[in-house]
Amino acid sequence: MTFKTTLLASAIAIAPVAAFAADMTIGFSQIGSESGWRAAETTVTKQEAEKRGIDLKFADAQQKQENQIKAIRSFIAQGVDGILVAPVVATGWDEVLEEAADAEIPVVLLDRTIDADESLYLTAVTSDLVHEGRVAGEWLVNEMNGADCRIVELQGTTGSSPAIDRKNGFEQGIAGHGNLEIVRSQTGDFTRAQGKVVMESFLKAEGGENICALYAHNDDMAVGAIQAIKEAGLKPGEDIKIVAIDAVPDAHKAIAAGEMNATIELTPNMAGPALDALEAYLASGAMPAKWIQTESKLFTSADDNEAIFNMKKDLGY
């Protein structure tokens, strides 16, 4: 304990020296690689660490909290300077976070928050799911510019928080615009295959010509739906406007091809702001805000989607 404190104190003392950053070691406990976005987050985190000359110790928890706790304990034992955790569940973190606090190692949460005392972690870097939905809604409001529009919605997995929040956000975004109406809303389970299947049924139940826009809770479902729309003999992006969330490479590709209109980025770069906050804290003791919201950037055909696609395609999506 005292040894640790001395170490930390001396680290702070020499903080202004440029050589310090090169010696910094950060542990990163990742949930796993259950989705392309998650894989991209891992890649970007490694890139961010490399860019800053940080020694990143990476641990894949394979969807198990016990593995994450084990990883955090081993980071503490190794005496890392800071820990990044993408928590797999919201509860059960108190004990291991107290151990980290005792060792005076700051912990930053990535991408999700937890049910624990705020003092146990430095900050949480997450996106705002409701905000993402709202940006999508607002884009459609502008795009339609007062024209009537019947919207179909592809929801995420029923009951999951992204599905609930992105639905609410979108409804807030279009609230007060009587020309916009959600006529069908069904789950596509966040998958390409279900997105296509459900869109097929929308096209039949409503008649393709009666649908003006599609809002999908993620890009994968939108990509599936685009195929359904094509098979129905309609032009996606023209006959039916499509807006979705995540900004995965295939969405940029679709926008570049004119088959999709907009996507809102769920950035895989949670580590950038997190490492910024950690470096500032370790250097000068500057306390960041408890919640750092990542930017929910809107991409449309106005952007150079071809270039973004090429940049993103190797991130592991």
Partner: peptide, 12 residues
């Protein structure tokens, strides 16, 4: 299933 969505989605 893969051909239907022009992609192999190992997770789903």
């Amino acid at each position: 299933v893969a051909a239907d969505i022009k992609g192999a989605d190992a997770n789903n």
